[in-house]
Computed example of a mutant assay.
Amino acid sequence: MTIASLSSVSRGTGTGRLAALRLPPTVALSFAVIALVLAWSLAPGLFTGHDPVNGIPADKLLGPSAAHWFGTDHLGRDLYTRVVYGTASSVTSALIAVVIGVAAGGLIGLLAGFLGGWVDIVLARLVDVLLAIPSFLLAVIVVTALGFDTVNAAIATGVSAVAVFARVMRSEVIKTRQATFVEASFLLGGSRWHILSRHVLPNASRSVLPLAVLQFGLSILVIAGLAFLGYGDSPPASDWGLLISIGKDYLKWPWLVYAPAFVTIATVLSVNRISRWLRKTD
């Protein structure tokens, strides 16, 4: 092979790598939206100077303007500020739900798929029972038992997601366990713990990341739905679902519903787009 051909191959490889690293515009926009939401949750005071709890009665129910981007509510509080300060609760609750779902569901699926036998039968039947109950209904049942609180709503949402993660992890573990390199490790005398931790778990968990990202968006919706129904924190909290619930009582001033609903929808759609991109670039 000539130097020129080697040079062209090198340039082609470099171009291919750059193309692989280049994000589609919709994915880049989705990452920007998520970055903004995370910044709101970490440092809300940097994005607004209004008080999220105490308003100015004379400024109640003002429409969106340069002074109040999302308008004001019935107590004269800046709605944009309320949305920004409510982001921390919504994001934190969704993260708690995802962690519970990944940890509990992943462990159940890992044990069921790797051990097999009666362990697989028992755990698979448990997962089937959980899947037979609609996730939102299961979340309502759990949060009713634990008490009306945002953290309890997050726990309830995480419990409702356990079955999904368990089913995905179990199928991936079974597929990985039948791989040639796993059988070779068994023949070379590898212990079950070594094979599980070094071979099965790293390869089986690849499909869990896109699912966890997708579940993060779904958890935001479920927690917002629970807050809308009154199963979360009570006012003056500013969870996104609670803001929508309060706004529905003032239909003559639609921005009270549109603003928090738009932020919720934009966040969930961005998370879903990132999840689809992760699945394609696995």
Rank of each mutant, 00 (worst) to 15 (best):
R17N: 12
D249E: 15
V173N: 08
L21D: 10
L131S: 01
G45R: 11
A139D: 08
D239Q: 15
V53E: 11
F181T: 02
V9H: 13
V91A: 10
V33G: 07
Q178H: 03
D78I: 14
V122S: 06
F70M: 02
A184S: 13
A145N: 13
S7I: 09
T13R: 15
A153R: 07
G49N: 14
I155Y: 02
V102C: 09
P235I: 09
L18D: 04
L110E: 02
V84G: 13
G217C: 10
V33N: 04
L62Q: 08
T87S: 15
M1I: 05
S234Y: 15
G16Q: 05
S10R: 14
I244G: 07
N272T: 05
I133Q: 03
I133Y: 00
Q178R: 10
L46C: 10
G190K: 09
G12P: 02
A94C: 10
S197L: 05
A132P: 04
R192H: 13
V213W: 00
V91Y: 11
H199D: 09
S238Q: 15
G241A: 12
G55P: 06
A161D: 07
H199L: 04
V222M: 13
S65Y: 11
N203W: 09
I246S: 15
A66C: 00
A32S: 11
I244R: 02
V143D: 06
K175E: 07
L75F: 13
V159L: 07
S90F: 09
G76Q: 06
V84N: 08
L42R: 02
L126S: 03
S238I: 01
A179S: 09
A166P: 00
G225S: 12
F70Q: 06
D59G: 06
A20H: 15
L115G: 02
V119E: 04
P57L: 12
S275I: 00
T150G: 10
G101Q: 07
K175H: 05
L229E: 11
L107V: 15
L131I: 09
L137S: 11
A103L: 11
V129W: 05
E172F: 08
A163D: 13
V208H: 00
D78M: 14
P64A: 08
A112V: 01
L130K: 02
M169C: 00
F165Y: 12
K280S: 12
G158P: 02
G45W: 10
K248N: 04
L79I: 12
G105R: 05
T13C: 12
R273S: 11
I56L: 08
A4H: 04
L18W: 10
A156W: 04
I244Y: 09
T281I: 03
S93K: 01
L256K: 03
I220T: 02
S219D: 01
G12F: 07
S185G: 10
T72G: 03
L6A: 09
Y250G: 08
L38I: 10
W69R: 01
W118S: 05
L209R: 04
